[in-house]
Design a protein around this nucleic acid. Structure first.
Lengths: 325, 325
DNA sequence: TTGAAAGCGCTAACAT
DNA sequence: ATGTTAGCGCTTTCAA
């Protein structure tokens, strides 16, 4: 910038004014400055700008488990869209469901002075964020609430969705309904398990622990868990798959074994229609959008008490959930 | 930081030393400083740090078309992984295949002084990046080469892959082979079209322009284009789908019409196995990894001439490509 | 309409 | 082992 000033024979401040479209510069002076800028290939240094102006990097930090999971990539896309429309850029990182990695990532983001954080939390205690929040960094949690921290969260109706999934299978005559779920440490896995149990209890069908397999965090594990269920002497006639990864694993297992087990999966996915898979659908994009919009409102000064939004989950019948026992 | 210094009764520099784990600080002093840091909830401001140290924000800018597309999300994931291992964070943005949006995004990233750029280019002229590159910002292009700019690129074998896809269909007896492709402005679409044409020419089968439909940039458009092909009085017996989005659209159309058209798709996708879809597979993750690693090498001072890496594409037979005419 | 100087939070270089 | 000073590139304040 100093070079530009010298080149254009004006003061630093004048260059600054031109760069920031402030008025009070004669057109001919502005033109001279503009020429110098292109000549020298000048780019305003936002770091210095932010430093001086006092802390708005116009950046949002996004922490999710894994962008490669379509659930999170849809969410990321929606976040990006809202953020850019409001003039923010997004620094994203995958935590891989590791609390330590998550914490490290959050630290890095805070050191870079992101204005706000959008987090799908992996850890089970987020008190370490208290100082940041007090320093003015806003945060909105997604998919899972914060633990030990009173902060905004956009969630979905996990219990209700799971309950309706199982009710649907019960309505089609199934009594031996298995569940393959994610690991216990994940909020949504536990909630969906609860929905499963509630539905069975309400129908007067007891929970057979042999049919309830939490602990599968990826496609491969889910396939193995499903195979184990199908290999039981009295296998389930239907399976409730706890999320999009698990549904894929379950389908692979069922196909491999050649069974005709009914399936309802939690989370919709792109080719579910061609595979005729009945799912409990909801919108990760809507979750991202609402979270980003709420965060932006917070950044613009909204100080109302922390909200908890619960988005709906909807049954989409496509065939696999309507197979009889 | 000044507050911390005051609180701990030491100088600024001492606090700096503690924060940066430099040595030359007595343990008890360090402890006092550490206490002050936690007490005040202090976080080093990386903006100021970068400003002083001279331009390494330890940040990489990533510009792709759309994170929600599994091709790009896999790539993004790999980029993130390499970047974090080397101590970089990733600022990502989707260009939506819009040259103006891409340029704007690149400008924002450069203003934020990212150390390097990873770009799947949408525009058809990237000369505007010349000043940035001269200023020391490194760049690696992915999936498509830069136009009018001599810079590293990690590509895949589009022509060869497309040729082999069509050869495979020819080998299974097809003579009326349709192609549904992306828009003309996209490098890969044109290359894949060329492979298609070459394969037909080599087999002595003429190109029937009625069977060649470029211009579908999303699933919906691809479905429509495929429906149009299938509605011809003499429809193709096989379809070569130009990318992952197009394959999905083509499958929907074929299913809707109830045809038994053979299909080979470019790009592998998650449920292709369950749907028995033959594809030309390659690894977007590998592309992201290699691009990120090359970029990091450049950032560490590698000044060797720009490279162009071409990753292989492999035929994966799953059934849909082996259907007879 | 334009400019000079101070300072954002930090670290490099040099004292002590 | 610790402190002092200057300055990164910009904007803000106030003066010309």
């Amino acid at each position: 910038m100093r070079d530009v000033a010298k080149e254009a024979q004006v003061s630093l401040k004048t260059v600054s004014r031109v760069v920031n479209d402030e008025d009070g510069v004669r057109p001919e002076t502005a033109a001279r400055v503009a020429k110098a800028i292109t000549a020298l290939g000048f780019r305003r240094n936002d770091m210095a700008r932010v430093l001086r102006q006092g802390q708005s990097s116009r950046t949002i930090g996004l922490v999710i488990e894994d962008v490669a999971n379509p659930f999170y990539s849809a969410l990321t896309r929606a976040v990006e869209e809202v953020a850019r429309k409001r003039g923010y850029l997004v620094i994203a990182g995958s935590s891989d469901e590791d609390p330590a990695g998550e914490r490290e990532l959050l630290r890095l983001l805070c050191e870079r002075r992101v204005d706000g954080l959008l987090v799908v939390p992996a850890g089970s205690d987020h008190r370490f964020l208290v100082p940041e929040l007090r320093m003015g960094t806003a945060a909105v949690f997604m998919d899972r609430p914060a633990v030990n921290l009173d902060v905004d969260a956009i969630l979905i109706d996990n219990v209700g969705g799971a309950r309706r999934a199982v009710e649907h299978l019960l309505a089609h005559g199934h009594r031996r309904i298995g569940m393959v779920g994610d690991v216990w440490t994940i909020f949504t896995a536990v909630e969906r398990r609860q929905g499963y149990v509630e539905a069975l209890a309400a129908a007067g069908v007891g929970v057979d622990e042999a049919l309830l397999r939490l602990g599968s965090h990826d496609v491969v594990a889910a396939e193995a868990a499903t195979r184990a269920l199908l290999a039981l002497s009295d296998p389930p006639t239907a399976i409730f798959a706890g999320n999009n990864r698990i549904t894929v694993g379950a389908l692979r297992a069922i196909r491999a074994v050649g069974a005709r087990t009914a399936v309802v999966g939690f989370d919709d996915f792109e080719l579910a229609d061609l595979l005729s898979i009945t799912v409990m659908a909801h919108s990760p994009a809507e979750m991202g959008r609402q979270a980003a919009e709420l965060l932006c409102r917070r950044l613009e000064g909204d100080r109302s008490p922390p909200q908890r939004v619960v988005l709906p989950v909807e049954l989409v019948r496509r065939g696999s959930g309507e197979v009889p026992p």
